[in-house]
């Protein structure tokens, strides 16, 4: 490739990066209004370990577990995230507290809290093929959720990074990510 072509390519990449940076990142979920009323907003997204944990595993020569797909109920009544115990184990999350009381309806906790990362991906509307990746590192409690509809709850610890809208009439739920300041 000539130096002129390389310059053009770099300029195009820089322009695409700027466009991506400016683009609002919005997760959008469309439900049947009746389903939204009955089940609440359930989304499928990833659960994994934090970068610090992954670095420690790599340094020790251990494999880094893959991201686990989880169905989460968006629960504005929960201050933190909860997942079924097997999902915390499958994702390889790091135990940081073995005695954490939890009060709630429909949750029978194991009393264990893990450090984990909830990951989101949103396809760009301005750059074809590009995906906005976001993640929130947070503590994740494990519990016995007595339902087969979802695998965990996303609480306000994750929602604090988003502007959320809930349209009960149309069935649309959106979550716009607050991008960190550059």
């Amino acid at each position: 490739m000539s130096s002129s072509a390389a310059r053009k390519r770099r300029a195009a990449e820089a322009q695409a990066a700027r466009k991506l940076q400016r683009e609002p990142v919005v997760l959008q979920f469309d439900y049947q209004p009746g389903a939204l009323l009955y089940h609440g907003p359930i989304i499928t997204t990833g659960l994994t370990i934090t970068q610090a944990h992954a670095d420690a595993l790599t340094a020790a020569g251990s494999p880094v577990p893959p991201v686990v797909s989880c169905r989460f109920l968006i629960d504005t009544g929960a201050d933190g995230c909860v997942v079924k115990h097997e999902f915390a184990v499958k994702a390889g999350l790091k135990l940081i507290n073995a005695n954490s009381p939890l009060a709630g309806v429909g949750v029978d906790t194991t009393g264990k809290t893990y450090m984990g990362r909830v990951v989101f991906g949103v396809p760009s509307k301005v750059i074809s093929g590009a995906v906005h990746s976001m993640s929130v590192d947070t503590q994740v409690m494990s519990g016995d959720l007595k339902t087969t509809l979802f695998d965990g709850l996303i609480g306000r610890d994750v929602l604090q990074h988003f502007v959320m809208t809930y349209d009960g009439k149309t069935g649309r739920v959106t979550m716009q990510y607050h991008k960190p300041s550059p």
Binding site: G77, A78, V82, N97, P101, A103, V105, G106, M115
Partner: peptide, 18 residues
């Protein structure tokens, strides 16, 4: 190792689903 937030009381999460 243990990491735990120091909170006013020991109940740390209230979830209402059902």
């Amino acid at each position: 190792f243990l990491v735990r937030q120091i909170v006013p009381k020991d109940v740390v999460n209230v979830s209402l689903y059902g």
